[in-house]
Design a protein around this nucleic acid. Structure first.
Length: 315
DNA sequence: AATGCGGGGTT
DNA sequence: AACCCAGCATT
């Protein structure tokens, strides 16, 4: 949960998660949809699938015992260099330096490194520096201290150098140039897309679709939608045409609900949401994995994408 | 080595 | 609007 996600956001999810899946065995035999529901809104849903996969492996192949050595643990799905080092050092006291985004920033400033922290080429450099600094006697505590230092004191903007416990050892602070570090590569500008979303009612039920298990928002549910290239026609007409072309359903638009914006990592979207009525047609799924006609008070039972939650109360 | 993958807080 | 976050898997 903590991969690329701040502690504050994780805490509540973590508590609920442990309550629902208190043991490795419970997690291993969990239903993926139920797990995704617990993960709903946390993002990076492959983490949930990998965690479940890892639990299955540990239960079935490892006698239910989490590996206590770095190499074996590192092989589990979803476990990379950082997670392996963090868990093995904190849980078992093994000597591995955990290098996350916070640690890289601390190191870049401490040694005035001109290597961009977001350039994978220099990952090993930061790893070496962290290993050099690591306290061999209490690696877990040291790793947590480094991460906490980065999060609380050695912040991205306006670091609190005057109260930093290690400012005597920080070459950037001693040179009064801490604001020039760390360096990072500019990211590419991200594209924008326009989508129409159809809330299609048939009697008392509404149509929702399940996204493919892998890829963006894998396994989550959403209202039918489609991309508009240009806004030349009436949005209502575009909406009907897209639903016809994508799902073989004939519908009519009964009203405009709202417009929302939603940003992802690599693109951002503007969505026009339309209230629609089902007219005819048998649904055909090409892109999507599954579909359901559900009553509006049942939607909560499905893990829904965040963009749809933004207008769900209106539905 | 580069890219895809969320969502929210901070500046 | 840009940046960042207790990164990992895939290609």
């Amino acid at each position: 949960m903590l991969q690329q996600t701040q502690v504050k956001k994780v805490v509540d999810y973590y508590r609920r998660f442990l309550q629902k899946f208190p043991t490795l065995e419970k997690l291993a035999e969990s239903n993926l949809q139920e797990l995704l529901k617990m993960w709903e809104g946390l993002g990076y849903y492959a983490r949930a699938r990998n965690l479940r996969k890892a639990a299955k492996i540990v239960v079935s192949d490892m006698n239910g015992e989490v590996p206590t050595d770095y190499k074996t643990f590192r092989k589990l799905p979803g476990v990379g260099d950082y997670t392996a080092a963090a868990v093995q050092s904190i849980a078992f006291g093994h000597v591995h330096a955990a290098v996350d985004g916070n640690v890289k920033r601390v190191i870049a400033r401490m040694f005035m490194l001109d290597s961009p922290v977001n350039d994978i080429k220099f990952q090993s450099l930061f790893q070496e520096k962290a290993s050099f600094l690591l306290d061999r006697d209490q690696p877990g505590t040291f790793n947590q201290a480094m991460m906490e230092l980065g999060a609380m004191i050695c912040r991205p903007k306006a670091p609190l150098c005057t109260i930093c416990p290690v400012n005597l050892f920080c070459t950037a602070f001693q040179s009064a140039c801490q604001d020039q570090f760390p360096l990072s590569l500019k990211r590419q500008p991200i594209p924008s897309y326009y989508l129409v979303v159809a809330v299609i009612r048939r009697d008392e039920e509404i149509l929702i679709l399940q996204r493919p298990t892998d890829g963006l928002l894998g396994g989550l549910w959403e209202f039918p939608c489609g991309e508009i290239d240009k806004v030349e026609e009436l949005p209502e007409d575009v909406c009907c045409r897209i639903i016809q072309d994508s799902f073989n359903l004939q519908i009519e638009v009964t009203g405009f609900l709202t417009q929302i914006k939603h940003a992802y990592t690599h693109f951002k979207t503007t969505m026009d949401i339309f209230e629609c009525r089902y007219l005819s047609g048998e649904i055909v799924l090409e892109q999507m994995q599954d579909y359901r006609w559900v009553k509006s008070d049942q939607i909560d039972q499905y893990p829904l994408i965040g963009a749809n939650h933004k207008f769900l109360s209106l539905v």
